[in-house]
Design a protein around this nucleic acid. Structure first.
Lengths: 227, 227
DNA sequence: TAGATTGTTAATCGATTAACAATC
DNA sequence: TAGATTGTTAATCGATTAACAATC
């Protein structure tokens, strides 16, 4: 508890970090247009947020802009990548090679951002040993060894809810630093393991909730309704 | 602008609605254990939130509990389903039958919550006409007709970023009420169309960011670190 | 220089938590 | 009755927005 130890803790709203990814995505899409600078106002407009928020979000991490000019796109891309940790390659273990796991393995968007699925695991004898894009699906019992060998620090879980906690425990035991979970379950993890979870059904439920809310707020069919 | 028109607008924090889905998920998993009531404290503990938050979240929608007792699980499931709009079947159009689209179609979690993918569309001649689990992949040009015919009100987009906006426009034109988007793009949609978006690469970036933050906050390797 | 735009402080807004009377 | 727990108000906390001096 010496002074300063809590300094770096929670100064950054987590929503700010989430927006950083979206800024990056837009900046990368701008590169091909040949633009070289962008203002917080333009970036905000493209993302549907306020200019003040763009500047504040970036301000949590440093000073990247030029008054009167804006931000240099190439430079900002590099800086945001550093912040997010995608200025490097991350080796990722995929656990669960069902249809979702297979789709995630084939998904091109990951490697574009430096995430390389370098090992695949399952517990199903029918898929263990199967060759997949240059890899072999391994028995989940080989996880710890492969993680250590392959310098793997992230795990993607595409397994049923029933086995989710035990797979998570195995990933933690293997020494993984972060878990991206698709199983519809809350995982208990040690504090030093990072955690992002998506439940696809929950997201669809949110959509139906929003649809319902819109209908309640506009009880009479009025497709051209203004502000 | 007559009085009262804004009443139902934004009394409910959107984070509250998101948690409702998680409460529901946990309650459903409890059913098989035979428990019949649960307190806000127990529910909170299982989800990693505070008991006050559980009560407040539910309080936005009504009074579902019994002082001194807690909530009746069966009853609360029914009520949350009503709130989320999953007390009915939603027909869903899946647009984009690549590997992600195929995985989403096979995903069992959707139908459990009442979402039925009842039509599949693509623009690729190689997959159009292909039979898939009792359906045929249709040409995306048939969207509007099929949506009207099939009482479809939600759309899932599993298409590349490049075509995302035009697919979204087609869904809107076809009269869809909500879009679940997996394309890494910000969509422009009319205000009366609900919208949930997941960018898988963005989620992985968030994970690497959190891993990086944990490492910065604990510069010296200390796997047994306490609170 | 005048116009544009940043970085940052202060003001506002919204969401979470704590506390407790009412109820079973 | 005593103990448990809700629903809700008030207090706290955190995040967003507005404003503006500094800068190019």
């Amino acid at each position: 508890m010496s002074s300063g130890e809590k300094e770096s803790q929670n100064l950054v709203p987590k929503a700010a970090a989430a927006r950083l990814s979206l800024y990056l995505r837009h900046l990368e899409s701008l590169r091909i247009t040949g633009a070289s600078t962008i203002s917080s106002k333009e970036l905000a407009r493209a993302l549907g947020v306020t200019a003040a928020q763009v500047r504040k979000d970036l301000g949590y991490f440093g000073q990247f802009g030029f008054p009167g000019i804006g931000y240099k796109i190439e430079n900002l891309i590099v800086e945001i990548r550093k912040i997010l940790g995608t200025d490097r390659i991350w080796n990722v273990a995929l656990v669960g090679y069902g249809s979702l796991g297979a789709a995630l393995f084939r998904y091109r968007g990951f490697e574009k951002q430096g995430f390389r699925i370098s090992a695949i695991f399952d517990n199903n004898p029918a898929v263990i040993g199967q060759p997949v894009g240059g890899l072999l699906v391994k028995n989940i019992t080989a996880l710890a060894h492969a993680v250590a060998e392959g310098d793997i620090s992230l795990g993607i879980m595409a397994v049923p809810a029933e086995t989710a906690q035990e797979v998570a425990d195995a990933l933690v035991f293997a020494g993984i630093s972060g878990i991206f979970n698709f199983a519809p379950a809350v995982l208990s993890l040690p504090e030093n393991v990072a955690y992002v979870s998506i439940d696809l059904a929950v997201q669809l439920e949110q959509l139906s909730f929003h649809v319902k809310q819109l209908r309640e707020d506009a009880p009479f069919e009025d497709p051209e309704q203004g502000i």
